[in-house]
């Protein structure tokens, strides 16, 4: 039943496919591989990040680990319990949050939401009475618990989700893009909540699109792309993938067709990505030539309105871009 391992989460050759139907009259089944041969281990008390582009397989992996989706192949266990064979034992030991505003009863108050989930976890009413005010205080919703959730801001809903997921004092937490859509202050407060949970020795699997968030919070990070893990390391270890590179950042205002392809074709451009920032765009060119690459880049951008140009050390995001292919 329960293995004697010290790992909180063990994932071995996990695979998940989905089949979808194509066509109206003559329907043919198409199989899509969402997670393919994924393996990793997370130690007790570790904060582990799972990063990857949209559709890479992050949420599918989390759903399998939280017993909401049955794997097509491979195996996974949480606290030594197989997620399929011992799903109820796993459920007693985990809490999970999926990003976004859904997943709460909007017509109920925050406290009633927590009361209902406490009853779903079979928590004693006396314990519930003490724990709900404690958790509301912990997530910064003190004094707002009596209000209906429909009046909560997105950040408040996310914090109520945290309180909900901690009701039964789970050892392992799955946080799937928990800061999605939060404003900068709300996201910062939420990251502090995550750090507090980590200090309580909770094992946390965090998925996020925000690299600085993963860099600041995670002990180790796995990068997943097209359903497969392509790297697992500490944030520092992942950065060594781009140790030989610098990043040339060029602020531009309106990029005409063909320029990105032209820059990608430059022999010294290891990878390139473009961040759209409203009226301006930020070109990020990874290169081993550092500042020496700037004149050639500027030459390629001739005739274009260019703002700030800097050359900097690579970050985790640069490592990520290089690992997933730099096609952003």
């Amino acid at each position: 039943m329960q293995s004697t391992t010290m790992n909180a989460i063990e994932v071995s050759h996990l695979r998940r496919t989905f089949s979808s139907q194509i066509g109206v009259i003559k329907r043919t089944a198409k199989e899509v591989v969402a997670v393919d041969d994924v393996s990793f281990r997370i130690e007790e008390g570790e904060l582990f990040g799972l990063l990857g582009p949209n559709g890479a397989g992050k949420t599918t992996t989390v759903k399998m680990l939280t017993t909401l989706l049955i794997p097509t192949g491979g195996s996974a266990s949480v606290k030594g319990f197989d997620v399929v064979a011992w799903a109820d034992e796993v459920r007693k030991r985990i809490g999970f949050i999926f990003g976004g505003e859904r997943g709460l009863y909007w017509r109920l108050s925050g406290i009633d939401n927590l009361r209902y989930f406490a009853s779903l976890y079979g928590i004693d009413p006396d314990v519930t009475k003490k724990r709900i005010p404690f958790l509301l205080d912990m997530v910064g919703l003190n004094g707002r618990g009596d209000e209906k959730v429909q009046g909560y801001s997105r950040g408040m809903k996310q914090r109520l989700h945290v309180a909900r997921t901690l009701l039964h004092e789970p050892d392992v937490l799955f946080l799937d893009e928990p800061t999605l859509g939060l404003d900068p202050v709300g996201a910062r407060e939420f990251r502090q909540v995550i750090l507090n949970l980590q200090s309580e020795k909770k094992t946390i699997l965090l998925t996020t699109h925000y690299m600085f968030e993963a860099d600041a919070l995670c002990d180790r990070i796995a990068i997943i792309n097209h359903g497969s893990i392509i790297a697992i390391d500490t944030p520092g270890g992942l950065k060594t993938h781009v140790r030989d590179l610098n990043v040339v950042e060029v602020e531009t205002f309106g990029i005409p067709d063909g320029i990105v392809e032209k820059l990608r074709a430059l022999p010294f451009a290891d990878s390139l990505s473009v961040e759209d920032q409203g009226q301006k765009q930020m070109l990020l060119i990874q290169t081993s030539r550092g500042a020496e690459a700037v004149p050639d880049v500027m030459s390629a951008l001739e005739g274009l309105k260019v703002g700030r140009v800097i050359v900097r050390e690579p970050t985790l995001e640069d490592a990520y871009v290089r690992l997933v292919g730099g096609k952003a």
Partner: peptide
């Protein structure tokens, strides 16, 4: 529709009672 079904099925609660 509320997105709560997954959270309910993620608990060990007795489905019959729920």
């Amino acid at each position: 529709d509320n997105g709560t079904l997954g959270y309910i099925f993620g608990t060990p609660a007795n489905r019959l009672v729920v």
